[in-house]
């Protein structure tokens, strides 16, 4: 029921933010499309923790500014690598082990790695990740430990961060 309400609120906010009209006709059309979407989501059986991840929105809101800071720092490195006259890069493949428990936390961790320029998640299998990095010295497994810990805390909750 909480998932249902979360999806309802998110979809209603999306409709109102997109249309910006408050006439009865458009509000009625919005209500109809909300109803159709909710019925479809219920029949597809995706009203669960992964499909409606709004329960962890506070933890994620705390995680996001830190991620932005990391992205800005990594961007600077890659921009320098793009513009240098000599192509001074040392690509590497690193194997990682994550402490994230749930699939959603693993997805958050892997997407954070991919979103940071200079590192891309190539494969996930269980709790092992294969990461391609642009600089060998910047992408050692220890460099990802804090991101791992923070994304696990953001999605899995306080108790799961080992």
């Amino acid at each position: 029921m909480a998932y249902f309400l979360g999806l309802l609120i998110a979809l209603a906010a999306f409709w109102l933010g997109m249309s910006g009209h408050f006439e009865p006709l458009l509000l009625g059309l919005g209500a109809a499309s909300l109803a159709v979407t909710l019925i479809l989501a219920y029949r597809l059986d995706i009203l669960d923790r992964e499909g409606v991840p709004y329960v962890r929105v506070v933890g994620f809101a705390l995680y996001f500014p830190w991620l932005m800071k990391e992205i800005v720092k990594a961007n600077w490195t890659v921009i320098r690598a793009c513009l240098r006259a000599d192509l001074d890069i040392a690509p590497t493949l690193v194997k990682l082990k994550t402490v994230c428990k749930s699939d959603l936390a693993k997805v958050t961790f892997a997407n954070s790695i991919t979103l940071t320029p200079g590192t891309v998640t190539v494969e996930i299998d269980g709790d092992k990740l294969l990461v391609h990095g642009l600089y060998e010295q910047d992408s050692q497994p220890e460099a990802f430990a804090e991101m791992d810990k923070r994304s696990a805390r953001a999605i899995d909750g306080k108790g799961a961060a080992a």
Binding site: N75, P91, P117
Partner: peptide, 22 residues
């Protein structure tokens, strides 16, 4: 420019992610 310059596919991907993020 990074996409044009970098030597192989995986490194080009890092350059393409500058466009997507910053």
């Amino acid at each position: 420019i990074g996409v044009m310059r970098f030597p192989d596919f995986y490194t080009r991907m890092h350059a393409a992610s500058i466009t997507d993020t910053s």
